[in-house]
Nucleic acid binder design. Structure first.
Lengths: 329, 329
DNA sequence: TTGTAAGCGTTATCAC
DNA sequence: GTGATAACGCTTACAA
């Protein structure tokens, strides 16, 4: 920039103005543009950030970058973020509480203009760090009601109920459930949703039909083995698609037909559900939509930090595919 | 920082020194630490970057963030990068040439300290932008020999040959191939590898047994339909695991058994291959290893930009699973 | 319209 | 050991 100004024979301020499209006489503009082109001038993003107090970066913190549900969210977020002229910085938290809180605290360094976070556990230290953050944060997921932070949520209790209702309607009565950890927010919500839904349909809650693992493929595969060892269910609801894929393959490995012998419903409606055989019915929790909304909220808040905390809700819906379709016997 | 210095009653310079752990009398150190704690001082990353001329950020540009092969690479890269105290910025290029080149040119803004890029096409403008880049770039993938840029590659020709050899040895003779676009670097390499391998085993190259689509699941599914319509092959080699999963499901949908009726081998050895049923044999191209190496090269080069361009090679190997395992008849 | 100069929050180089 | 002071590369009042 210094060089450009010198080369164009104008002050450094004039050069800056021209390069930012503000004023300047035709002659000055020409000279500066020329000089800039000659030396291949490119503005320094850091210096500009120091001045403007913004980095043009937005962070996304997710637990597991390999989970297709986060891939879908990430895509939606990326679209909004890059449309707003910013770039996305992705963090993987591995669901470590210390790590997530440390990440929130690091925001004080102001290396990003904002963050979208989807924690699966919310602790006291999370909420404190969230409220203390000098940089806007949008949380995707359930958040205590009194925490005034922008928040996008869905209702996975209702989501599980949709799955149970669908299976019940298809005539299934021994409905099993493979859940993720109960000490996570989605884990508890889905557990409650399952139990409530069973009762609502006049079914007993049999603990033998409920399995808990983590939210991974291998856990689904292991859980279905245990369920089958205790007696075959008519149908299985899984707390996410990764678990559902594991369960599906466990069933197939035992020579069972899906949906003929056992029907299956997953959750999150990810690509994985469509990339399975048979394709897996899945409760969509609107992950792309949640991502999009969260990104919008964040962009708006960065533009106007005085906005009151907002809360968006995305309704779940069931996508029925072959794994739970009624079939001729 | 200004505030901290004032509060501690020392100069701003002394405060900076203490906070960076350089010298200071016991008394000064105490006062500064105290003042910093009281006001909750956190250093500003941007200002620090402006001074140090580095951002502590490393970018990764991949074509498709949803492809499990990139997820594996990303994980490996993230590990090395964060161990070096830096953070990872992920870009999705959607394989757009203009986008990739623009990304390389944007490096001149110095918003990151370096970049790892895995382009599937390499054009003249790529190599020019690569060589012009003022910021270190490591390329994962084939690069023209005369381009002096750090590079990590594998040998997917040999990889395809491993697959063909394995299938041939198992007695398969009508071996089909589902490839990605021929105008991509991996596409051409795999095509050449397939043809060469067939010849080496004394088989004819039948164009009818070669299908081309993109590197996605749906393309694999569509391609296998076309192949089956023309007459069933004994075995199918797929240019990646996404294609292989699509092909697998196409076969199953036609009521064919894998590997009994048709054997199948994928490529990249991703989680998807293990999360399929039956599990898919796959040629590992060492994606995690390539990611790790690339990240190491980048970290080294950032530390010492004068290093000569280096080239690392990762050998492919075949991972045999159920989809190509010999089975009792 | 243009130039001078202050400032963004740090770090680093000096004298002292 | 410590404190001025000059960078880092840019934007932006303010004055000319």
């Amino acid at each position: 920039m210094h060089t450009v100004a010198a080369r164009a024979g104008v002050s450094i301020a004039s050069a800056s103005r021209v390069l930012n499209g503000l004023g300047g006489s035709a002659e000055t503009v020409r000279k500066v543009r020329e000089a800039a082109a000659e030396v291949g001038y490119v503005p320094n993003a850091i210096a500009r950030s120091l001045q403007s107090q913004r980095t043009g970066l937005v962070a996304l913190a997710v637990e597991d970058i390999g989970n297709p549900v986060y891939v879908a969210m990430m895509r939606a977020i990326e679209a909004v973020v890059s449309e707003s002229g910013r770039q996305l910085l992705v963090h993987q938290t591995s669901a470590s509480i210390g790590g997530e809180v440390a990440l929130l605290q690091r925001l004080a360094h102001r290396y990003v203009d904002g963050m979208i976070m989807s924690p699966i556990r919310i602790t006291e230290s999370h909420t404190r760090a969230l409220l203390d953050s000098p940089v806007p944060v949008v949380v995707i997921g359930q958040l205590p009601d009194d925490v005034a932070v922008d928040n996008v949520r869905t209702d996975s209790r209702t989501g599980v109920a949709l799955a149970v209702g669908h299976l019940h309607e298809a005539g299934h009565r021994r409905i099993a459930f493979i859940n993720g950890p109960l000490d996570t927010v989605p884990g508890t919500a889905r557990d409650a949703g399952f139990r409530t839904a069973l009762v609502k349909h006049g079914l007993n809650v049999e603990e033998d039909l409920i399995e808990v693992g983590d939210f991974q493929y291998a856990a689904g595969r292991a859980a279905i083995e245990r369920l089958l060892d205790r007696g075959r269910p008519d149908a299985v609801v899984c707390a996410n698609d990764l678990i559902a894929a594991g369960a599906l393959h466990g069933l197939l490995a035992r020579g069972l037909r899906v949906p003929h012998d056992v029907a299956l419903v997953g959750m999150d409606d990810t690509e994985l559900a469509q990339m399975s055989f048979p394709q897996i019915s899945s409760v969509s929790l609107g992950s792309a939509e949640r991502g999009r909304l969260a990104a919008r909220l964040l962009v708006e808040r960065i533009a106007d930090p005085t906005l009151p905390a907002r809360r968006e809700q995305v309704a779940p819906h069931l996508v029925i595919r072959a794994s739970s379709q009624a079939v001729a016997g």
